[in-house]
Amino acid sequence: MKNIFVIMVFSLLFAGCKQEIKPADIAKLNGYWEIEKVVFDKGEEKEYKMNETFDFFQIKNNKGIRTKVMPQFDETFLTTDTFENVSVRFAGEHVFLDYKTKYTKWSEEIISLSDDKLVVKNPQKIEYHYKKTGPVNLMNDGEKTK
């Protein structure tokens, strides 16, 4: 019985641990992010081995844009004219990315954010796990492309 109590206390402790995201952390969003996996509300996962597009965030003073970009052979990115306006919203212990286009708007909660990892959750409780990325050498020879 004592072991069950200890396990329950530790379980609650770990479940209650959520990264506190501070205003200074928002600068970590800037740059290129590649999706690694999606975790659905029932626990199923979909892994992404390779992506044709990355998400590019450019945020300053809690406002900015997110756009899709495609890596090119010369280690540059091809961009489109489509983007979402993004604003960062702090609501108590939660931090949200509020997106807006001329057609719709939606929000995602930032679950965790570090220099190289990002996890966001949408209202349908679907989590998107990203890793920070940069120029890609598609030649796969270990050398910089010219």
Rank of each mutant, 00 (worst) to 15 (best):
E127L: 15
G134C: 11
R66H: 09
I26S: 01
Y48T: 03
D25K: 05
H129F: 09
Y130V: 11
F40R: 13
K146C: 11
I21R: 06
Y128L: 10
V88W: 04
K18E: 13
E44H: 10
P71H: 00
I26A: 02
G43M: 09
N85V: 00
M139V: 03
E108A: 13
N30L: 08
K105W: 08
T80F: 01
I111H: 00
N62H: 15
Q72L: 15
A91S: 12
V39F: 08
E47T: 11
K28D: 12
K28W: 06
F10H: 01
I59K: 04
P71F: 00
S114G: 07
W106P: 09
K2S: 00
K49V: 07
Y128G: 04
T82Y: 07
L29C: 09
E109Q: 02
N61A: 11
L78F: 09
Y130H: 11
L29P: 06
Q58T: 12
V9I: 15
C17R: 13
I126E: 05
E108T: 13
P123L: 00
H94E: 13
I65F: 02
A27I: 04
E108G: 08
L118C: 08
T79H: 06
D41Y: 11
Y48G: 02
F14S: 07
F57P: 09
P23R: 04
K117P: 00
F54W: 05
K63T: 15
D81Y: 07
L29E: 10
T53E: 14
T133W: 04
E108H: 12
Y128N: 05
F10T: 03
P135F: 10
R89C: 09
D81K: 14
L78T: 07
A15L: 14
L113G: 05
D81C: 11
V119K: 10
E20C: 03
I110N: 06
A24S: 14
K22C: 07
N122A: 04
V86C: 07
F73I: 08
N3Y: 02
E52A: 04
C17L: 15
Y99E: 12
Y103N: 09
